[in-house]
Simulated scan of single mutants.
Amino acid sequence: MNDRILPGPCHLCGGSRGTRISGTWVCADCEWRYGDVPDPDLPLPRIDVVYYLRFDRRVKIGTSMRPRQRLASIRHDELLAFERGDRTIERERHRQFAALREGGEWFTFSAELEAHTSLLRSAGDPWSLHARWLSEALRA
């Protein structure tokens, strides 16, 4: 795929990079067809994510169906990754990293946790992934 600049921002994610597929522009970030506008009268699909936020040498593992809103309310230095999933996946991760728990949903940012978030991050930028999941749900 040869990414180029879209004629304008994507109506779904605001991305600026795109690809021409069969003569149609498609956003490179979320794969939404350029020019299509989500119906403003319909609610957006629910996309649950498990998020990994770093603050100093600690990581918060939480979940949200509205990550932009949620992350805006939590003090953090960096969004490390998103993983698609709900409280079930969040509880699995809390058990997986239980030895690193500092309290509540906060964990020591160890090599093990860094490797996990790096693996998740290898799938793409967290916000681009979220936009792609949203686009897929809208197209379904």
Score class of each variant (00 low, 15 high):
residue 114 E to D: 14
residue 36 D to K: 02
residue 6 L to A: 04
residue 75 R to V: 05
residue 139 R to E: 15
residue 25 W to S: 05
residue 45 P to N: 11
residue 23 G to F: 02
residue 22 S to T: 09
residue 26 V to R: 03
residue 74 I to E: 05
residue 17 R to C: 08
residue 134 L to M: 12
residue 3 D to C: 10
residue 24 T to F: 07
residue 70 R to E: 10
residue 65 M to R: 15
residue 108 T to M: 12
residue 138 L to C: 10
residue 11 H to D: 11
residue 13 C to K: 00
residue 133 W to D: 03
residue 3 D to T: 12
residue 75 R to Q: 11
residue 63 T to N: 10
residue 130 H to W: 04
residue 131 A to C: 10
residue 74 I to Q: 05
residue 48 D to I: 01
residue 131 A to Y: 00
residue 49 V to G: 02
residue 24 T to K: 08
residue 120 L to T: 04
residue 1 M to L: 09
residue 45 P to R: 03
residue 139 R to S: 15
residue 75 R to A: 10
residue 71 L to Q: 08
residue 119 L to S: 14
residue 41 D to W: 08
residue 121 R to I: 12
residue 20 R to K: 08
residue 20 R to Y: 02
residue 53 L to N: 03
residue 14 G to R: 03
residue 62 G to M: 04
residue 71 L to S: 12
residue 61 I to C: 11
residue 38 P to L: 08
residue 83 E to N: 06
residue 104 G to K: 04
residue 85 G to A: 14
residue 65 M to P: 09
residue 82 F to Y: 04
residue 39 D to E: 12
residue 134 L to N: 01
residue 131 A to H: 01
residue 139 R to V: 15
residue 118 S to L: 14
residue 2 N to K: 15
residue 74 I to H: 05
residue 101 R to Q: 15
residue 75 R to N: 10
residue 95 R to A: 15
residue 33 R to E: 05
residue 64 S to F: 00
residue 128 S to N: 13
residue 112 E to F: 00
residue 48 D to H: 07
residue 49 V to N: 00
residue 17 R to Y: 01
residue 49 V to M: 10
residue 25 W to N: 02
residue 95 R to L: 14
residue 28 A to F: 00
residue 127 W to N: 02
residue 7 P to S: 06
residue 87 R to G: 12
residue 103 G to F: 05
residue 121 R to Q: 11
residue 109 F to R: 04
residue 62 G to F: 02
residue 63 T to Q: 11
residue 100 L to H: 11
residue 36 D to I: 02
residue 8 G to M: 01
residue 45 P to I: 03
residue 29 D to S: 15
residue 119 L to H: 08
residue 75 R to H: 06
residue 44 L to M: 12
residue 79 L to P: 13
residue 17 R to N: 06
residue 21 I to Y: 09
residue 94 H to Q: 06
residue 93 R to N: 13
residue 92 E to R: 14
residue 127 W to V: 01
residue 75 R to I: 04
residue 67 P to D: 00
residue 81 A to Q: 11
residue 106 W to V: 07
residue 64 S to C: 03
residue 24 T to M: 10
residue 74 I to M: 07
residue 72 A to W: 00
residue 89 I to G: 12
residue 62 G to N: 03
residue 17 R to Q: 10
residue 130 H to V: 01
residue 78 E to L: 11
residue 39 D to M: 07
residue 41 D to N: 14
residue 127 W to P: 02
residue 118 S to T: 14
residue 95 R to Y: 08
residue 12 L to C: 07
residue 111 A to K: 05
residue 129 L to S: 03
residue 114 E to V: 07
residue 85 G to L: 05
residue 111 A to W: 04
residue 112 E to A: 11
residue 42 L to Y: 00
residue 63 T to D: 02
residue 3 D to V: 07
residue 59 V to K: 01
residue 138 L to F: 02
residue 136 E to F: 06
residue 126 P to H: 03
residue 131 A to P: 08
residue 90 E to Y: 04
residue 44 L to K: 01
residue 130 H to T: 02
residue 117 T to K: 07
residue 83 E to D: 13
residue 43 P to W: 01
residue 100 L to F: 05
residue 47 I to V: 15
residue 15 G to T: 01
residue 54 R to P: 13
residue 45 P to G: 12
residue 42 L to A: 13
residue 32 W to P: 03
residue 43 P to A: 10
residue 140 A to G: 15
residue 61 I to T: 08
residue 51 Y to R: 06
residue 16 S to K: 09
residue 5 I to P: 02
residue 68 R to Q: 13
residue 58 R to W: 00
residue 97 F to L: 06
